[in-house]
């Protein structure tokens, strides 16, 4: 009878997932719970860690930096990744594979190595400044490191594959005949892009943007190497609180706020896209 077999099937599925669930429980859920506890109890019980974080201008600037950079990085990444994903989707198979390999290779290269490479390229006497000066476009070298410009450039580069992959997924599923139909209906390339291609790619844009935004919020290496101490972001604050100041209460509170924001964004995405796709 279906009524009795269905629950048993569901039970066996749970069995397969058990190792993963135990792992998450031991190394994620329990530590997060401990962190939350410490943020509410150290140095003394109460919400004072959260009040300090949300109340002071110093911390407000860090929050602003974090969300501003994550937002700008996400926007630029979408703008760059969309044409790249489109190119990948329409290129002949061989060329698409080459381009795809280049993207993956850059993703697989060590993060620190890539970030140091950007430091070399972006510094005052770096390649980019010398090239711009050589071309006569600028007289003085631009300040590209130790500020949010450097952080943004470095992070856009690192985040690109995470935007290209989900975009490629949705764009590859679009039947080219739909775009031909749009053209015969009288749509210019721009109109076809705005009215057909982008709406059809919206689920991919949303999941890529969420991934990039959330990863950017918690990114540590790139902001600390390219941003300098004056432009601290949230992950640097957490590291500083925990490692230098051994202030587990503040660090925990900041980490927990980050987690709440992330889950909130994920909920928004689920609400607007996943259900729409299924229905």
């Amino acid at each position: 009878m279906p009524a009795t077999t269905a629950p048993r099937l569901r039970g066996s599925g749970f069995g397969f997932a058990l190792p993963a669930i135990l792992l998450l429980l031991a190394f994620f859920v329990i530590p997060v719970a401990m962190l939350l506890t410490r943020s509410l109890t150290e140095p003394e019980p109460g919400l004072q860690n959260y009040i300090t974080l949300l109340g002071s201008t110093t911390y407000a600037k860090i929050f602003f930096n974090t969300f501003f950079v994550a937002g700008v990085v996400t926007a630029i990444t979408v703008l760059i990744a969309f044409p790249v994903a489109w190119t990948l989707a329409i290129l002949p198979k061989g060329w698409a594979a080459v381009l795809f390999a280049v993207i993956l290779l850059s993703m697989w290269t060590n993060l620190l190595a890539r970030t140091y490479a950007w430091m070399v390229l972006l510094q005052q006497t770096g390649l980019i400044n010398r090239m711009l000066m050589g071309l006569g476009l600028i007289d003085q070298p631009l300040q590209l490191t130790n500020n949010l410009v450097g952080v943004t450039i470095g992070m856009v580069y690192i985040m690109l594959p995470f935007m290209i992959l989900p975009l490629l997924g949705v764009i590859q599923k679009i039947d080219p005949a739909i775009l031909q139909a749009a053209a015969l209906c009288g749509a210019t390339k721009g109109q076809a892009l705005r009215r057909v291609l982008v709406p059809l790619a919206a689920p991919g844009i949303a999941s890529g943007a969420l991934m990039v935004f959330v990863m950017s919020l918690g990114y540590y290496v790139t902001p600390s190497l390219l941003g300098g101490t004056a432009n601290m972001m949230l992950a640097e604050l957490i590291a500083q609180q925990v490692q230098s100041l051994v202030n587990w209460g503040m660090g925990g509170a900041a980490a927990f706020l980050l987690l709440v924001v992330t889950l909130g964004l994920y909920a928004v995405q689920l609400r607007f896209f996943e259900r729409g796709e299924a229905g």
Partner: peptide
């Protein structure tokens, strides 16, 4: 897009 020609395709091409 400027030919002003109508077309119905073999595959389903509604948006």
């Amino acid at each position: 897009h400027k030919r002003n020609i109508g077309m119905v395709f073999q595959r389903y091409t509604l948006f």
